[in-house]
Simulated assay, not measured.
Amino acid sequence: MARERDGVTGVAEGVYRLHKAGVNCYLVVAGDGMTLIDAGVPGTWPLLERALGEVRARASDIDAVILTHGHFDHVGLSRRLADEHGVESHIHPADALLAQHPYRYAHESPRWLYPFRHPGGIPILAAMAAAGAFGVKGITPVVDVVPTQPLEVPGGLVPVWSPGHTNGHCGFHLVDRGILFSGDALVTLDPYTGRTGPRVVARAATADASTALVSLQNLGATEATLVLPGHGRPYEGDVRRAVKDALRQKVA
Rank of each mutant, 00 (worst) to 15 (best):
V214T: 10
W161T: 06
L228D: 07
P198N: 07
E54R: 13
A57P: 02
D176T: 02
R117C: 00
F134Y: 08
V75P: 08
G138W: 13
L151H: 10
H74T: 05
D238G: 02
R104G: 09
Q149H: 06
L97W: 11
L189P: 00
R199G: 13
H74N: 09
I124Y: 00
R111F: 01
A209R: 10
V23F: 00
E13A: 13
L81Q: 02
L81M: 14
K244F: 01
F134A: 02
Q217D: 09
M34H: 04
D245E: 13
V214H: 13
V243L: 03
G237C: 04
V8T: 06
H85V: 04
V23W: 00
R117A: 06
H169L: 09
T206R: 04
G237V: 01
L189K: 04
L228C: 12
N167F: 14
G43H: 12
E4V: 14
P110R: 15
Q249H: 04
G10D: 05
P234C: 02
V29Q: 02
A131T: 11
G135S: 10
A129G: 05
H107K: 14
L157H: 01
P42L: 07
A30E: 12
R248L: 10
T188P: 00
D184V: 13
F181W: 11
V23M: 01
S215G: 14
D63W: 02
T206E: 14
A224N: 00
G53S: 05
H118N: 11
A82N: 02
P102R: 14
P141N: 02
I66N: 06
D38Q: 13
R17V: 09
F72G: 08
H101I: 09
V11Q: 11
D95R: 10
L113M: 06
A12M: 08
Y103N: 07
F72Q: 10
G194T: 01
V28G: 08
G171W: 03
K250Y: 14
V187G: 12
Y114D: 00
A242Q: 11
T140H: 12
D208E: 03
G7L: 05
G53C: 03
Y235F: 15
P154G: 04
D144P: 12
T193V: 03
G178C: 07
E88Y: 09
V136T: 09
D83W: 11
L213S: 10
C25S: 10
L18N: 05
L219H: 00
R56Q: 02
G86K: 07
D208C: 01
I179M: 05
H118Q: 06
Y105V: 14
G237E: 11
A130H: 14
A30H: 07
D73N: 13
E223F: 05
T44R: 03
P123F: 00
R56A: 09
P42S: 05
R240Q: 01
S60R: 15
G164D: 12
E152N: 15
A185R: 03
Y103D: 08
E54D: 09
E4A: 15
P198A: 15
K20I: 03
D32A: 06
P163A: 12
